[in-house]
Design a protein around this nucleic acid. Sequence first.
DNA 1: GAGGTGATTTTGATTAATCAAAATAATGAT
DNA 2: ATCATTATTTTGATTAATCAAAATCACCTC
Lengths: 223, 223
Amino acid sequence: MAHSSTVENYLKEIYLGVSRLPPGEPLLPMGQLAVALRVAPGTATTMVKALAESGLVEYEPYNGVRLTAAGTKLAATVLRRHRLVELFLVQVMGMRWDEVHDDAEHLEHVVSDRLLDRIDEMLGHPDTDPHGDPIPGKEGTILERHLETLLTCPVGTPVVVARVTDQDPVFLRFVERNGLKPGELVEVEARDEGADAVRLRGRGDTSITIGARAASKLLVDVK
Amino acid sequence: MAHSSTVENYLKEIYLGVSRLPPGEPLLPMGQLAVALRVAPGTATTMVKALAESGLVEYEPYNGVRLTAAGTKLAATVLRRHRLVELFLVQVMGMRWDEVHDDAEHLEHVVSDRLLDRIDEMLGHPDTDPHGDPIPGKEGTILERHLETLLTCPVGTPVVVARVTDQDPVFLRFVERNGLKPGELVEVEARDEGADAVRLRGRGDTSITIGARAASKLLVDVK
DNA sequence: GAGGTGATTTTGATTAATCAAAATAATGAT
DNA sequence: ATCATTATTTTGATTAATCAAAATCACCTC
């Protein structure tokens, strides 16, 4: 089975799924993969076995799946297309950062190398997309730098938002309204375990309080 | 059967195929459709029957196929996407007119309405693509204006190239090298039935002779 | 009008991708 | 250790799209 957009999606979700897991040499459980791809569990199993045949993933029955080197490389080129396209749509086409994900989801499978080169060039060979996600290199090198979240970073220290790891438009608009987009300066004033909340002071000295769940999706550069 | 890119391609090729036929109320023979889509004849038959079920085409066994109003409208939106994308790739992305067809062929199936609106706006609501092909309106109205070809237009009269009806890169580069792109002024100096050739005088008073086959692909505005 | 040629349709299979539901394995709690 | 729960895999079917090759039809020529 060659290299359909279905295959690209499986590899992409396996990559993203694994990278969301705690460090180590983790395997992505089939259940999570099936949810991410919105397919029935059995479908994911069947497909992953086929991908294993093609040498794109390692599959351990009942344990999960992980990418091989070849699979990682392919996933990286898909991610590169996706993220360059997202940035292009924002930067060149003037679309909002909360409305580009779905288009990118489709375009990532059809953009030719030639067109992608043009896009990359036009954007000045950027290394992150509008959400702060790293754009893999042409040869499939992904530079995932280590970042704290607003849940783990030091309190009372100014930090810079570097990445927002949730593409939900509602969340993205909230982030934008409150000056929490990548590049913005914020500071954690306090954390309240009990209330499951984090109080921030951002641009304009206005304090806002966000839930822990939201705080964990905002990655920051502690400097 | 809903509205896959396969369906879009069938409708598009039926539209294009019919419009290449002599006027009247013609039916596109299944053979031609199969060739255009690069599928086996039986495949085209099966698919067309399904399209007829969906009310997108009229199918007369052994005679051929033609679009219904609904089918025409859908074909028009595909053509609109294709042609706007082609113009975009040339105008905005700086690609050559002879290298945009294949990208457009894929992009036409995935570009969202929102993105297409942006493209349309950015290009100033153009009405022809780089090859002079008309860009259907948002509601599916196609303005096919009547044009002569270099085989049928008056001799010794200046005419303006309006449209090039062949996407082959080799041909397009020939056209460009010889100043025969849409917008350029030319004049048929003579036609030679026997030699199957047409002598032209174009920009810079240089005379060139092209074959009848090529001449028939260059549509001109006699004014 | 009888054949033959070429186009078209049928038939029978195949492949990729999917689902629902049954079967099985792993896990954790008693 | 046993059992119940939950995750995973199997099984059996389905759908869209395709092909090759056999059957059929249309049409032209003699």
